[in-house]
């Protein structure tokens, strides 16, 4: 198994992951565009589900990628970059909620219907159910179940210790299951 372009003996692999001796190759426009087309939709969905507002999601998506480019990301594997972008997006979403709290707004944005398809009601119900969770719980569940992030990646993204993630996920799932049951949205109750 090799790291990108680098073949190392096992004891040294971890060291080089920390002390990168190879010069950073910043991302060029073409590579950025390719990466953007692969990840932007997922980032937008994540931010939208977290904030509940499409305009906020648009704004934070742009800010996420501005910060991403400002950090002059070195070309590593895509998983590493994707994790970095999700971490940036999560920080921006948490900053957004702190800003809201500072202005004493206690309600979480729930999207206004912008289409009239028949499944709109279900979408609204699901958004409302998800919005009942705390921002950190939303981030945990999304990163774990939708993005398939590892506990270490989740811990890094939301700024907690790795060992805490398992317990936090357990609690978040329990909370969500309770909310879904209460709203009649749990898989058995919806289809039963």
């Amino acid at each position: 198994m090799t790291a990108d372009g680098l073949i190392l003996q096992a004891p040294f692999a971890l060291q080089t992951a920390t002390f990168r001796r190879t010069p950073k190759r910043p991302m060029d426009e073409a590579k950025f565009e390719a990466f953007y087309r692969k990840t932007a939709a997922r980032i937008w969905s994540y931010i939208f589900r977290m904030t509940g507002n499409a305009a906020t999601a648009d704004d934070l998506l742009q800010k996420t990628f501005f910060r991403f480019l400002r950090s002059n990301p070195a070309i590593a594997n895509e998983d590493h970059l994707r994790h970095y972008v999700f971490k940036t997006a999560t920080n921006l979403v948490f900053d957004h909620f702190r800003e809201i709290r500072r202005h004493h707004q206690h309600t979480v944005d729930v999207p206004v219907a912008f289409d009239h398809r028949h499944r709109d009601e279900l979408r609204h119900d699901m958004m409302r159910a998800f919005a009942e969770l705390k921002p950190q719980e939303r981030a945990l569940l999304w990163l774990a179940h939708v993005e398939g992030s590892s506990h270490e990646e989740i811990a890094d993204a939301i700024g907690v210790k790795g060992k805490s993630v398992k317990v936090m996920l357990f609690r978040a799932r329990k909370r969500l299951a309770g909310i879904l049951t209460k709203r009649g949205l749990a898989p058995e109750t919806r289809h039963g």
């Binding site: 565009e33 969905s45 949205l185």
Partner: peptide, 22 residues
Amino acid sequence: WMKQFAAIDDRPHGLPDPGALW
């Protein structure tokens, strides 16, 4: 449930152009 939730396509418009962002 999370995967069903994530599968809903509710983006009202296209994403910003990557060239413009760059």
